[in-house]
Each structure stands twice: as C-alpha cells, then as structure tokens.
C-alpha cells in the first residue's frame, strides 16, 4: 500500500525572508490512521499545515511531499484542496456579504468539477447541505449567515467541520481545532470529526492539549520541536507529555 501522505527530509520556511522553520521532517500517514502532532509554541506546527495546504507565503527548500501519489509541489492551493487535503483553520477568516450556503456551493461544485462530476444546481445542493447540517447540528439560520462574520469560536469550528463533511477530504488537518473552545464545544467538534473518520481517510491533529486527544483517539503521537519530529509513539506519549512537559523530551 502506498502512503496517503509521505513527507521526506523536508526543509521549508517563510518565502519572504527565507527563514527556515521546518528542518528535516519525515512523516508517513496511511489511510485510516489518526496522527497527532504536539509541540511547543513556535515549533512550526502551523507552518507545516500551511505548507501542506499550499499557502503562498511558505516554500520548500529541499525534500519532498507526496500526497495520494502526486507530488504536492506541482498542485496549486485549490488543486490540493480538490485532491483531498482539508485544513481546518485555527482562525477561520470572515468573508462579509458571502453566505455560508453560497460559499459552500462554490466549494462543493469546485470539487465536483475537479473530479469530472456534473455541478449541483441550487436545489440539489440545498438538499445535500441540509442533510449534512442536520447531522452535525448546524442550524438553518447559521447557513444563511455571512461566513464567519460575528461567529463565536465554537460556531467557527462547527462550520469548519460542516465543510469537512461536505468536501469529504482524504486528509483532514485540524490545526489547533481546540483553541478558544470550551469543553462542550470541543466535544461537538470531536464528535463531528469522529463521525467523518473512516478507513479511507486520515486525520492529522495539531494540538497543545491532551483534551482533544481524549476525544479523538490517535493511532500515533509525534512530538515536534525545532522543525522536526523528536519522538513518535502511541497515545501514551501524549499522556507522558501532559505529565512531564516538553522539557524532558527536548533534552532527551
């Protein structure tokens, strides 16, 4: 079986000032797996997620990322999304005047077009949207609102999960999905994610806390510091980390 995501000897950083943030990263993720990356602030965790998603501010200096049999560097940001990479953002941005439903229709149809499927018309799309929203407990009122405008932290994350449900990614990256959420909201997000996870897709969870990993059970936990993985293990590694802090791992 070929890996869904394979990162080999990756060195990368900020395009503008050539600052290297990722230094010698190796990571393999197979379909069906849940990986968690934990690391101190400033370790470059978000850089990794932006790099995978193709944000233009970041660039690879050496190494390679293969996703689902394709060299990721040859795909544009939207092509990567349509090929199956979904990044649930830490701070989803507001787009005034654009309703949630209209935005999602554009996104779903972009993906269908990429896959060579006919686009959904308004009626067909609404049916799909309503089903998904109901499943995830998203109200009809929220679908009419302008995207992320005046949304609470919990609402924003819920909207991210709704998008994930509609776009059915092969690899979902949850970047600090727990930031700014109370425990109830966190539970709702985790339930949504668990419901979507199956043997054909994979999750990459970037987090500081054990809380989320108690709700979404990881197969692998990686401790990430100074631009690369310093230790990999199972969930017990996260528990040890919670107990002893990063310091003991960084010194090891």
């Amino acid at each position: 079986m070929t890996a869904l995501l394979q990162i080999k000897d990756l060195y990368a950083g900020v395009a503008e000032n050539k600052k290297e943030i990722i230094k010698g990263l190796n990571l393999t993720i197979n379909a069906g797996e849940v990986h968690a990356i934990m690391g101190p602030n400033g370790a470059g965790k978000s850089t990794l997620s932006y790099l995978l998603a193709g944000k233009s501010d970041y660039e690879i200096t050496s190494g390679k990322i293969d996703f689902d049999g394709k060299d990721l560097s040859e795909l544009t940001t939207s092509e990567r999304a349509n090929a199956g990479i979904f990044l649930s953002m830490q701070y989803p941005v507001a787009i005034p005047g654009v309703s949630v439903s209209s935005f999602l229709k554009h996104a779903v149809n972009a993906k269908r077009k990429y896959a060579g499927l006919p686009e959904l018309d308004a009626a067909e799309f609404l049916k799909v949207l309503r089903t998904a929203a109901k499943e995830l407990g998203v109200s009809a009122e929220m679908l009419k609102r302008e995207i992320n405008v005046g949304f609470s932290g919990g609402e924003k994350k819920r909207l991210e999960i709704l998008q994930m449900r509609l776009l059915e990614p092969k690899l979902a990256i949850l970047d600090e999905a727990d930031s700014g959420l109370d425990i109830d909201a966190l539970r709702i997000v985790a339930e949504g994610v668990n419901r979507l996870h199956n043997k054909d897709n994979a999750l990459l969870i970037i987090t500081h806390h054990l809380d989320l990993l108690n709700l979404i059970e990881p197969d692998f936990v990686h401790i990430y510091a100074d631009g690369h993985i310093v230790r990999s293990g199972d969930k017990s590694l996260a528990e040890a980390l919670e107990k002893d802090g990063y310091k003991s791992f960084l010194e090891a």
């Binding site: 193709g54 953002m89 654009v98 935005f103």
Partner: peptide, 17 residues
C-alpha cells in the same frame, strides 16, 4: 487562501469576495 483551501480557484474566489 481560505477560499482556495476549500477548492475555489483564485478568480472565482475574487468574484465571490
């Protein structure tokens, strides 16, 4: 970036915004 990350191409994203 947000639009593009959801698969919407750059020109379509500008139109939408």
């Amino acid at each position: 970036f947000y639009c593009q990350q959801r698969g919407i191409g750059e020109e379509e994203a500008i139109g939408l915004i």
